[in-house]
Amino acid sequence: MGLSHKKQIKLTRITIKAGQILLQHGAESQLVEQTTQRIGIALGASSIELSVSLDAIVLTSIFGSDCVTTTRRCYDRGINMQMVCDVQRICVMLEKKLLDTDQVSDRLNRLEPYYYNRYLVALMIGLSCSSFSHFFGGDWPVYITSFFASCSAMILRQELAARQHNPFVIFALSAFLATSIASLGVIYDFGEKPQIAIAASVLLLVPGFPFINAISDVLKGHISTGIARWVFATLLTISVSFGIITSLALINVSLGWII
């Protein structure tokens, strides 16, 4: 099967578009690498070589003795598993020959991230953090405090994220708000161990996905990407702690019980 130079350029563009979408929406490096290689080979390249880093992809498609290389910056657009699912589905359909080159390119360009209703998300996150307070041994008043604290923190986080603020600023400010509201419970002695609410209500800010991605990247051989993700997640944790400690210092609640 022949592949003209023009077609190879088109193939490279489609392939890197898929990789870019995957990386921007929080897929691990192994998944990005495998899916782009499968799409490229299904479109007719002999092999696809790519280098994935945290914020850019370099990709070369090889056909016979022709190489086409291209680079894309991948700004973080927030974790969105629905986009990852859609790209994977396109890849599987392409491999089963249900789509041709133009359809793949068309579908990739038409993909739009789907978001849940933000107030529904805030409600569910409130309930989640209050479930955590139950795991820590809190009673009903603590449950209620952590619900309101984490709900308001989540709404603040969404508001700031919609205004494209720096993630570290978002996390520190949300932690500040959550801790301030939860320490009202301590001040007014609401429930048996009101301190639990402070510990539970900041758990919506744990960077769980980056931490898990970091370790699985390192395990699967993408060590530099894994280290970059680990540093990012650790810095997020530090900025959350900064928010907590500022709020506690201002409201004058003792730190003794946390550490």
Binding site: A27, E28, L31, M81, V84, C85, Q88, R89, V92, S131, F132, F135, F136, A199, A200, V202, L203, V206, G208, F209, F211, I212, N213, T237, I238, V240, S241, F242, I244, I245, L255, I258, I259
Partner: peptide, 29 residues
């Protein structure tokens, strides 16, 4: 036919030691 992190990461989120991580950093501060 969906990638695995879609289920697995959300399912293990309740087990992440978030409180311990924060208290480590708070202790360092």
């Amino acid at each position: 036919l969906v990638p695995r992190p879609v289920f697995t990461v959300a399912a293990v989120i309740p087990m992440i030691p978030g409180s311990l991580a924060f208290s480590t950093i708070l202790g360092l501060m």
